[in-house]
Design a protein around this nucleic acid. Structure first.
Length: 435
DNA sequence: CTGGGGTCCT
DNA sequence: AGGACCC
């Protein structure tokens, strides 16, 4: 066996296979080999499918009601999305990937880019990844590697699609004949970064395949389309323009919003939803050691329906940068009262924390006796928030919070098919029976 | 009946 | 601010 050493750029994309469906299988082996579908929030539509479900031609976005009969007959298995579980298994996968390269960019919950530049044999590393990740986590993965991110995406596609490759596809050069062959048949809108709209526009100019895009004049692309399209073309040529970002900046905005299982006009319901979202957002804020300088509260009706529509969002600067749940909840609810109007069936509400800055001690006033008092208050408040976060981390989100929380409120999500939070919640941990 | 949460660019 | 794209 001979390994080709690699001295130019080489980026691998590790992609978990049918991630959400695979996660559900890790703790429920009865699902192995069966068609499995995972539903969006509110059990609205299919957002992830196992290979078997794909083979039944059940598409992404299929509404639940269209497949509910199949589920009842036992032909397919459905699960509500269980992000606590997926997030935890994702972290386990990423932890293993860190062993293979000092440069790992977590691109999404189920994908990561690895910098393999200068490594002895990319093929061998890919083989080890594809072997080790499922052994340690139960999640199958495939890997594509090439000189640029965009080409790594293409390679990863082939790694999944062509059975003979065993989940691995490596292109050392952008001029690999096999790669060129494939680019020649790859439709323009299937390239990473080219969506429906750009695809249509490119086709109008006669550019229909990935190969045609990379051979087009780059300055012309920049002029007639945009910088990103030009970059995509260069990436397809093997020029690495999208740098690997293994230390992303902390978020500048944090958004929490959700649609309700039933539309509501009740201000009490909406206030409760806003309380919940503000609280969740603040938890995320504290996790990244940030302070929000402004908040935005939004409500909207269901635009899919023919009925009176109201959609409004209002931003408000906070008097001081803060990460205090109680304070932010209060402001958010005040905002809500300003934008809420009687007579509309609201379907969604949300809170966004804006202009986030790194945490710093609270700015104090002019008078010393006040300073001491305020400092103590601030200290107590931070302790409280810290304890709150720790408890909620252990017991489950919203286990402890502010104000009144009703278990069965209509504004909450529908999650009729949810699996247990096997790994992140003490009272849902799996029980092993032995005799 | 048909998701949520991002980023980047113009 | 809004559009386009991504998972």
């Amino acid at each position: 066996m001979s390994f080709i050493p690699c001295d130019t750029s080489m980026i691998a994309l590790v992609d978990c296979n049918d991630f959400y469906a695979s996660c559900e299988r890790v703790f429920d082996p009865r699902l192995i080999g069966r068609p499995v579908g995972v539903l969006s929030n509110n059990d609205g539509c299919i957002i992830a499918r196992s290979a078997e479900l794909k083979a039944m031609n059940i598409e992404m976005g299929t509404p639940l009601f269209q497949i509910q009969a199949l589920e009842r007959k036992g032909c397919i298995a459905l699960r509500s999305s269980n992000y606590a579980l997926y997030g935890d298994l994702s972290a386990r996968v990423m932890q293993i990937l860190d062993e293979f390269s000092p440069g790992v960019e977590r691109y999404s919950i189920d994908e990561a880019f690895l910098d393999l530049a200068g490594m002895q044999s990319p093929e061998e590393i890919c083989r080890q990844i594809v072997h080790k990740v499922p052994v340690y986590t139960g999640i199958p993965v495939s890997v594509g590697a090439a000189p640029s991110k965009t080409l790594a995406k293409v390679a990863s596609h082939l790694a999944k699609k062509q059975a003979g490759r065993k989940g691995i596809c490596v292109f050392h050069s952008a001029n690999d004949p096999e790669l060129i062959n494939w680019l020649n048949t790859l439709a323009i809108e299937h390239i990473w970064g080219i969506g429906k709209r750009l695809g249509r526009k490119l086709r109008q100019h006669g550019i229909e395949t990935a190969l045609q895009l990379r051979e087009a004049d780059h300055n012309w692309l920049k002029r007639h389309f945009s910088v990103p399209v030009k970059r995509t073309a260069m990436e397809l040529n093997g020029t690495n323009c999208l740098t690997l970002d293994d230390t992303p900046d902390p978020r500048q905005n944090i958004m929490c919003s959700r649609s309700f299982q039933k539309a509501t006009n009740s201000l009490t319901d909406l206030k409760e939803a806003i309380r919940f979202h503000a609280q969740t957002a603040c938890q995320k804020l504290r996790k990244q050691n940030g302070l929000a300088q402004a908040i935005l509260v939004s409500v909207r009706t269901n635009s899919h329906r023919f009925e009176p529509q109201h959609k409004e969002a209002r931003a408000w600067a906070l008097p001081v940068a803060s990460d205090d749940s109680a304070l932010i909840i209060r402001y958010a609810q005040e905002q809500l009262e300003q934008i809420w109007q009687p007579g509309f069936r609201y379907r969604k509400a949300g809170v966004m924390l804006l202009d986030i800055i790194p945490w710093r001690p609270m700015q104090l006033g002019l008078f010393e006796h006040q300073q001491k008092e305020k400092k103590d208050q601030e200290h107590k408040r931070r302790n409280l928030m810290h304890t709150l976060d720790k408890l909620n981390d252990r017991i489950g989100r919203d286990a402890i919070g502010f104000g009144l929380s009703r278990e069965q409120a209509d504004w909450k999500m529908k999650m009729a098919y949810r699996s247990p939070r096997y790994t992140t919640c003490w009272n849902e941990i799996p029980v092993v029976k032995a005799n």
